[in-house]
């Protein structure tokens, strides 16, 4: 156990990376922020629709989608990957629906069956075409956010726009923000009251599949950075942490940005300190921040709950 947890030194953990390689560090932290913020925005709607685990399912089942897209197109270009991921995502959602509508298997089991089988199929394809597909099973599970500074740079003329994945994630994030502004009302209504939405002439299924489309795109852009399983954390944690602090949806959506920044920055430094996976450390930070909110939230925290309970008992005793 000796030396398993390295000694903490503020200078090496927090200051040196920014002194030695400010640009590379900034790309890593920036990517982390973009991933958590983009996932947080999409994830908030998933959590409110009680579909958090659909995010889990899609993040797993896009694997066969991108492997097949890779095998067909022969390239790791953005478009084939996106197309494969979106197709796999929509197929997943449709299959889950078909199973629980067409048989008495409950939605939870249907979800578990679909995503695990598709993911298994993806792993098999990956293992069989290992020398053809430039995707590493480990990367699928953990992501390689630490490699961001080494990725090929996007350039316009001689102006560098930063590493490709970061640029791509940035574009996805901006598009998501734009879509959110455009369709906020519809998303709100279809999430909270599909019946009302129908009576207002809003097609709930359009927004449902639209959200699934956004989810697939976000997940496929993120998973290279953080891996399929940690993507779920990025989808869920900002929303639930926000829910602990406020009841207003716009505020929860707004909170995903500072939360994302904290996950990314603190996670990066935690990983440096412990010399471990950056994506993993980001999620550990996310979990810890949720824990803080869970205990100390002024209205819904455990402490507030304990106080309220004592008050009721007191009240019952004096009544």
């Amino acid at each position: 156990m000796n030396g398993f947890i390295p000694a903490f030194d503020f200078q090496t953990v927090f200051v040196e990376p920014w002194q030695w390689d400010p640009v590379g560090t900034a790309w890593i932290v920036g990517m982390g922020f973009l991933v958590s913020a983009a996932c947080g925005l999409v994830g908030t709607f998933l959590v409110f629709r009680r579909m958090a685990l659909v995010g889990d399912a899609i993040s797993h089942s896009i694997l066969p989608g991108i492997v097949i897209a890779f095998l067909i197109s022969g390239s790791r270009g953005v478009l084939p990957m996106m197309a494969g991921a979106v197709a796999a995502g929509l197929v997943t959602v449709a299959l889950i629906e078909a199973i629980h509508r067409g048989s008495r298997v409950k939605p939870d089991a249907a979800l578990g069956i679909v995503f695990s089988t598709l993911f298994a199929l993806g792993v098999i394809l990956l293992a069989l075409f290992a020398d053809k597909v430039d995707l590493d099973p480990d990367c699928v599970l953990y992501g390689e956010i630490g490699l961001m500074p080494l990725m090929q740079e996007a350039r316009i003329g001689s102006v560098s726009l930063g590493p490709w994945p970061v640029l791509q994630m940035g574009i996805v994030f901006l598009v998501l923000v734009a879509l959110l502004f455009l369709f906020y009302k519809q998303l709100l209504v279809t999430s909270f009251d599909p019946a009302l939405a129908r009576s207002l002439g809003i097609r709930a299924s359009v927004y449902h599949y639209g959200l699934m489309f956004c989810l697939s795109v976000t997940v496929v852009s993120s998973f290279e950075a953080v891996g399929v399983i940690l993507v779920i954390a990025m989808l869920i944690f900002p929303a639930v942490t926000g829910t602990m602090l406020t009841d207003r949806l716009p505020l929860i959506l707004g909170l995903t940005l500072p939360l994302g920044a904290m996950y990314s920055l603190l996670g990066f430094h935690l990983a440096l300190w412990l010399d471990t996976s950056i994506a993993g450390a980001m999620v550990v930070v996310a979990g810890a921040l949720f824990g803080v909110a869970w205990i100390f939230s002024p209205r819904k925290g455990l402490l507030a709950l304990a106080l309220a309970r004592r008050r009721i008992q007191h009240e019952a005793a004096t009544a």
Binding site: R50, L53, D56, I229, A233, I236, V240, T276, A281, G287
Partner: peptide, 20 residues
């Protein structure tokens, strides 16, 4: 937090600790 959220959080949170 509803059941699905709780499950997802624990799943991903524990897994992240494990990965680290």
């Amino acid at each position: 937090v509803k059941e699905d959220g709780a499950l997802g959080m624990v799943l991903a949170g524990f897994y992240a600790v494990g990965i680290c």
